[in-house]
Computed example of a mutant assay.
Amino acid sequence: MSRNGRARRTPDCTAAGPRPRVRPRAAAERAEGCERQRSEGAGQAFVIGVLTSAADFEQARAWQLSDAPDHERYLAETAELLGDARRRFDTVRARMFHPQDFAEFCLLHGLDPAEPAARERYLVNPPLRTQLLAYQGEELVDDFLPRLVRARENGLTLRHADLLLDGRLYGERDDAVRAAYERGAEVFRRMLLGAGSGVYELRLAVDAPGGRLAAAARVLQWEDGVVRINDEDLELLCAVLCAGLARELPGLAVLHGAQGSAAACGEYRQTAWAWASEGRVWTPATGPVRLDGVAAEPGYRLETVC
């Protein structure tokens, strides 16, 4: 979780080296192309792909990715491998190993999916770097796996936003994109600041060529203004806001949750605010709205929040 309002970028991986030794032919060691990466001028990093569901595990059997008898055992071996990697490497990163994505990647690049080199190329493919998450010892099944699934979905949205901006979201930003990104981050900051302390979810949708850009994030805001939000969710929200403002696309945002804090004798109030944009600025919705099943009333004027 992050305590600040800036999104981190995941550094690129470079050439692969030997794997750490856990046990011979461990499921994750073979299956997902887990690789030891060496960055120029930096320490060592370890990258692994994880089959996040039993269905994906079964689909990947044809490529002989794992010797584990079932997905449950595979996850146990993967958790052990991640723990060992944290002790051996400076950085440990993971991404969801999606069988359909991998098959399409191999078809596009003329690779044999049964070859380890194909898995290695898939894991460190630069256009998909936004799907990588740092592993910091989280519980694998109930915590880290859902984040890996969201990171893939978020990564596809980030790729869409980057294409809308002609590659300037993750490439060299010009003044217009840089200004739009800063304006979007400021919109998000004012939404939270006006809400006060509490536990919220922000849902965001921007109508864009090629399909809707959508983002959602859970946010915890303390009485002292400290905000806790997953870095990857913060990055997605700012990117979608940036694309909408830079391309002047219409959008809708809903912030809902429990307003209040333990300092106020544990009193909480359910709230839901909505804002809309015609492309240039975000203003309170003109009336009650519903976004992804969440009903909300017009929000407060953001320019009045300092």
Rank of each mutant, 00 (worst) to 15 (best):
Met1Thr: 11
Asn4Ser: 13
Ala7Phe: 11
Arg8Leu: 13
Pro11Gln: 07
Ala15Ile: 13
Arg19Trp: 04
Arg19Ser: 13
Arg21Leu: 12
Arg21His: 06
Arg23Gly: 12
Ala27Met: 07
Ala28Gly: 15
Arg30Cys: 07
Ala31Phe: 08
Gln37Val: 14
Arg38Gly: 08
Val47Asp: 08
Val50Ala: 00
Val50Phe: 03
Glu58His: 09
Arg61Phe: 08
Ala62Thr: 13
Trp63His: 09
Leu65Trp: 15
Pro69Asn: 08
Pro69Trp: 00
Asp70Gln: 05
Leu75Asp: 01
Ala79Val: 00
Leu82Asp: 08
Arg86Phe: 04
Phe89Leu: 11
Phe89Ile: 01
Asp90Met: 03
Arg95Tyr: 01
Arg95Gly: 11
Phe102Ser: 02
Cys106Thr: 06
Leu107Asn: 00
Glu115Met: 04
Pro116Arg: 07
Pro116Lys: 01
Ala117Leu: 13
Tyr122Leu: 05
Ala134Ser: 13
Leu140Asn: 06
Asp142Tyr: 03
Asp143Pro: 06
Phe144Asn: 10
Leu145His: 07
Arg147Met: 12
Arg147Asn: 09
Leu148Lys: 08
Arg150Asn: 10
Thr157Pro: 01
His160Ala: 14
Asp162Arg: 06
Gly167Ser: 08
Leu169Cys: 09
Ala176His: 14
Val177His: 00
Val177Cys: 00
Ala180Leu: 03
Arg183Leu: 07
Arg190Gly: 00
Arg190Leu: 09
Gly194Ile: 05
Gly194Tyr: 09
Gly194Asp: 02
Leu202Arg: 01
Ala205Phe: 00
Gly211Asp: 05
Leu213Pro: 12
Leu220Phe: 00
Trp222His: 13
Asp224Trp: 05
Val226Thr: 15
Val227Ala: 00
Ile229Trp: 02
Asn230Gln: 15
Leu234Gln: 10
Glu235Leu: 15
Ala239Gly: 06
Val240Ser: 01
Cys242Tyr: 10
Ala246Glu: 14
Ala246Met: 02
Val254Pro: 07
Leu255Met: 11
His256Tyr: 15
Gly257Tyr: 06
Gly257Met: 12
Ala258Glu: 15
Gln259Asp: 05
Gly260His: 04
Ser261Tyr: 04
Ser261His: 03
Ala262Pro: 01
Glu267Ser: 07
Ala272Pro: 01
Ala276Met: 05
Pro284Tyr: 05
Pro284Lys: 03
Arg290Ser: 15
Asp292Phe: 09
Ala295Lys: 12
Glu297Gln: 14
Glu297Ala: 15
Pro298Thr: 11
Tyr300Asp: 12
Leu302Met: 11
Glu303Trp: 12
Thr304Ile: 02
